[in-house]
């Protein structure tokens, strides 16, 4: 499974959206219907799944699916 697929799977599980909606450009709030607490829970799921810490400052920049994938790649995360 690619990193992109794993991230998509986590987002689908948390937000109950369809996998095809989870495009790199998709914005968590405006496109995927997340609120601020959904975003916190998503970050927790990423932390648990990829065994890393995401600070609040880092999290505040991760507003799209692509931003999350880019961030994880920059941390050397692969699946």
């Amino acid at each position: 499974m690619s990193l992109e697929n794993r991230v998509t799977e986590i987002i689908v599980n948390k937000l109950g959206v369809k996998a095809e909606e989870v495009t790199p450009e998709a914005h968590f709030v405006t496109d995927l219907g997340a609120d601020s607490l959904d975003q916190v829970e998503l970050m927790m799921d990423f932390e648990d799944a990829f065994d890393l810490k995401i600070s609040d400052e880092e999290a505040s920049k991760l507003q799209t699916v692509g931003a999350v994938i880019g961030f994880l790649e920059s941390k050397g995360i692969s699946v």
Binding site: S36, L37, Q39, V40, E41, M43, M44, D56, A59
Partner: peptide, 12 residues
């Protein structure tokens, strides 16, 4: 209160 920080720590 810093809500999101508290939320994460509370659950765990």
């Amino acid at each position: 209160m810093e809500g999101s920080e508290i939320f994460k720590n509370a659950v765990r």
